[in-house]
Design a protein around this nucleic acid. Structure first.
Length: 761
DNA sequence: TGCAACTGTCATCTT
DNA sequence: GGAAGATGACAGTTG
């Protein structure tokens, strides 16, 4: 059963708050329904309010005994002040986007790019307000035009952006008022409301049964018999209420009733009005305050006392983060203190920081005559949202004090936020905003784009692979992919290497003597005397705190040098296309540690090649694809000795790279095993701790059970009035919860007897 | 000079 | 069956 009861007042007010937060002009309009003195009391400038005044007002207006009490008056007054200052409460973009990001891709997500949408929407709404006819007070929605306005209004609120915002508010409110509020989303088509629905007195709530018969209105508090009931407040109409009545589980369009701002007459909507949209709107907007047995104001005060400084600091940090991110449109609520000052009770309102009312929207005014009743058009019309699932979650947590967490939130507040996954996302987003993306994450993302590792083992998550992209001996695509990765990660180095690569690719067939001399002066294969790859200490930079990085003293990623130039004393009369491609696409990055042996190895083969006058370079021999390599050998007139040496050079060159890659893989595997070992040890320690705790609990239970047993037997007596010996008797628990005392000896004999029987049988 | 780390090479196996 | 890759073993080089 839906307990609207006396807390409906605040629910309606907060409905208006929600609507305001959505950027829709909201006139609370309660003053129309309330006695003038109430309006003055709630909305007036005077802040003096005594209990006597309230009692006098109650007596003067002959209020119903179930009328909201004094505490609610204070609360309502505070909330009205809150509504008035909504245009100055703001939310950080970080928080909003955090929630939006964490939403799954669906009808509720991804369509709310930024707050500018709201601003634009609100501005557009103002323009529409100025152009559309005004609905005066007392008018009844009896024309098709007015009905269309309602439809637009509903559609407008049914937009996905609004839904996202409302859900955000839902979570924010739920986290800030644990156990205080429940959204009406628990009432859906599937839910059945109890037959007795009590309406709070003195509120502009009017209920009709399916026969459009007025059954509850005004200050009465009747018992309403309804099969299904949903109540909502549309957009720009001042507290217009829609009641939709369902019969046999199906909404009846003709039973959707709309009440204009001041009229107590309910007008049915057009039968063509699609009911599901209304239902979505209803289940989205309305929430009510759940009655608690304790003093509400006291709890409210307690909660706010704890919540306020933390939330304020949080908002301030978010605002700073936004400023750092050049999102200067979000600021700290400037009038937060003013807002608090408006509450004589000292209630510190939590800053939900949703500024969706722009300055173009006229602020809330106590002057009821200034309320315009313009209807916004549904610029954000969209399909219905399945909000029931999302809004089905309510956050009602117990209110208990806890130690303040490391993040500055009180324990219970932090738990709430963590439950909603807000705190983590906010922290994550803050961290990213303030510090930028982590280099290792960035590097990881970059490396993952390198589809070809040339390795069969799982090294993609191997730490060392981050800084040392594998360049395997493979196709040109492999090289290009690696070159791409290197270009992304080490752009500076690649620039130079690209130059070298391009130089190598543009090498012509003939090699002049001058070039030969230059290369001899360089003393390195292909003229790559300068290592292009970053040194291995980059690993330590990317993974600070990991000791194993220090043990990687060299780069285990190897490849053949590019085919930039022939070896000294050799000619390169044939520079095939693939060779040029291979040479140009390969990043000219060679670790310093591997360069010297490479040069040395080249010198050894160089001498052999020079001795046999082999006209091909070392890189050409090694890197050429097998088809082209065979074509090269067949097209050249070489002796058998030369052919043998060329094949040996090719075999050794390839094997050298293979060995280097193999060693790197081995290291990676070793490191991965070490990590697994650490994780397993940690898991084992946790299991052991859990085992110890279980044994401790078991021992405790045994002890308590023994004490209980002794206590029971101490009160039992035999037929002679002597106490029973617990060692001779035992308790038997019957199937019908009966407990009998039986002799252990007799039971043992019985068991033996049964055993004998079983054996005999 | 001894040592550890690194590297090239060979043999062998697998793909 | 050959080519290429993978890998263990060994030896040379280097700091």
């Amino acid at each position: 059963m839906l307990h609207i009861k006396e807390y409906f007042t605040e629910g309606l007010i907060q409905m208006a708050i929600l609507l305001s937060l959505c950027g829709v002009r909201v006139h609370v309009g309660l003053e129309v329904f309330l006695p003038p003195s109430w309006c003055e009391l709630i909305l007036g400038p005077t802040s003096a309010l005594t209990h006597t005044q309230i009692l006098n007002l109650r007596n003067r207006h002959s209020l119903h005994p179930k009328m909201v009490d004094l505490d609610q008056f204070f609360t309502a007054r505070r909330l009205f002040g809150w509504v008035r200052s909504l245009d100055q409460i703001q939310v950080s973009q970080a928080e909003l986007e955090t929630w939006l990001v964490q939403q799954e891709v669906g009808p509720l997500s991804g369509r709310f790019p930024d707050q500018n949408f709201l601003i634009d929407r609100t501005l557009g709404q103002v323009e529409r307000d100025q152009s559309e006819p005004t609905m005066g007070q007392g008018e009844v929605l009896d024309s098709l035009e007015e009905e269309e306005q309602v439809c637009q209004m509903i559609t407008h609120h049914n937009g996905q952006h609004d839904a996202s915002l409302l859900f955000y508010l839902h979570r924010k409110l739920g986290s800030c008022f644990p156990g205080r509020f429940n959204f009406l989303t628990t009432i859906t088509v599937q839910d059945k409301i109890s037959e007795n629905t009590t309406v709070v007195a003195g509120l502009p709530v009017t209920l009709h049964n399916p026969g459009c018969e007025l059954i509850a209105m005004g200050s009465a508090a009747p018992n309403v018999s309804l099969e299904r009931l949903t109540v909502s407040v549309p957009a720009s109409f001042s507290l217009k209420i829609i009641i939709q009545i369902y019969e046999c589980g199906a909404p009846l369009n003709e039973n959707i009733y709309v009440m204009s701002e001041v009229s107590t007459v309910w007008t049915p909507l057009s039968p063509s009005r699609p009911a599901p949209d209304v239902l979505t709107l209803i289940t989205t907007l309305l929430f009510f305050r759940e009655p608690l047995g304790l003093d509400l104001e006291l709890q409210w005060q307690d909660l706010m006392d704890i919540l306020e400084p933390e939330v304020t600091n949080r908002v301030r940090r978010d605002a700073n983060a936004c400023e750092n991110s050049r999102m200067d449109s979000w600021t700290i609520p400037s009038n937060y203190a003013d807002l608090l000052d408006e509450n004589p009770g000292g209630d510190n309102l939590a800053v939900f920081s949703m500024d969706l009312l722009t300055q173009d929207i006229s602020p809330f005014s106590s002057d009821s005559s200034s309320y315009d009743l313009k209807t916004p058009s549904g610029s954000q019309a969209s399909g219905g949202n399945d909000l029931d699932q999302d809004f089905g979650r309510t956050s009602s947590s117990s209110f208990e004090l806890a130690e303040e967490g490391a993040d500055g939130f009180p324990g219970h507040i932090r738990d709430l936020l963590e439950n909603l996954n807000i705190l983590e996302d906010i922290q994550l987003l803050d961290g990213q905003l303030e510090e930028g993306f982590s280099p290792d994450v960035w590097a990881e993302a970059e490396v993952e784009t390198d589809s070809d590792s040339g390795l069969s083992l799982d090294f993609i998550h191997s730490p060392s692979s981050f800084s040392s992209p594998i360049v395997s001996e493979g196709s040109a695509d492999d090289s290009s992919s690696c070159a791409s990765a290197v270009e992304n990660v080490f752009s500076d180095e690649v620039d130079s290497s690209d130059e070298d690569g391009s130089a190598g690719s543009h090498l012509e067939v003939e090699v002049t003597i001058k070039q030969e001399e230059v290369e001899e002066e360089m003393g390195a294969v292909g003229g790559h005397g300068v290592p292009q790859f970053p040194p291995n200490h980059e690993d330590s930079k990317l993974f600070p705190g990991f000791s194993w990085v220090e043990h990687i003293g060299h780069d285990h990623t190897y490849y053949n040098p590019p085919l930039s130039s022939p070896a000294p004393g050799t000619m390169s009369p044939i520079q095939t296309e693939s060779a040029v491609r291979a040479g140009s696409t390969r990043p000219c990055c060679l670790s310093s540690s591997s360069l010297a042996p490479e040069t040395k190895a080249w010198s050894r083969d160089e001498e052999r090649a020079r001795a046999l006058r082999i006209p091909f370079s070392y890189q050409l021999i090694v890197n050429l694809p097998v088809e082209e390599f065979n074509h090269l050998l067949s097209s050249s007139q070489l002796s058998q000795q030369q052919l043998t040496l060329i094949r040996d050079i090719r075999r050794r060159g390839k094997n050298k790279i293979a060995a280097q890659n193999c060693r790197k893989r081995k290291l990676d595997v070793l490191l991965a095993l070490e990590e697994d070992l650490k994780a397993l040890r940690l898991h084992r320690s946790k299991l052991l701790q859990e085992k110890r705790n279980s044994l401790r609990r078991l021992q405790d239970m045994k002890s308590r059970f023994g004490k209980l047993y002794q206590e029971i037997f101490s009160q039992l007596e035999d037929d002679n009035g002597r106490p029973l010996d617990a060692t001779e008797y035992t308790l038997r628990f019957g199937p019908d919860d009966t407990v009998t005392v039986a002799s252990i000896r007799a039971s043992q004999n019985g068991k033996k007897h049964q055993g004998v029987k079983k054996r005999r049988s």
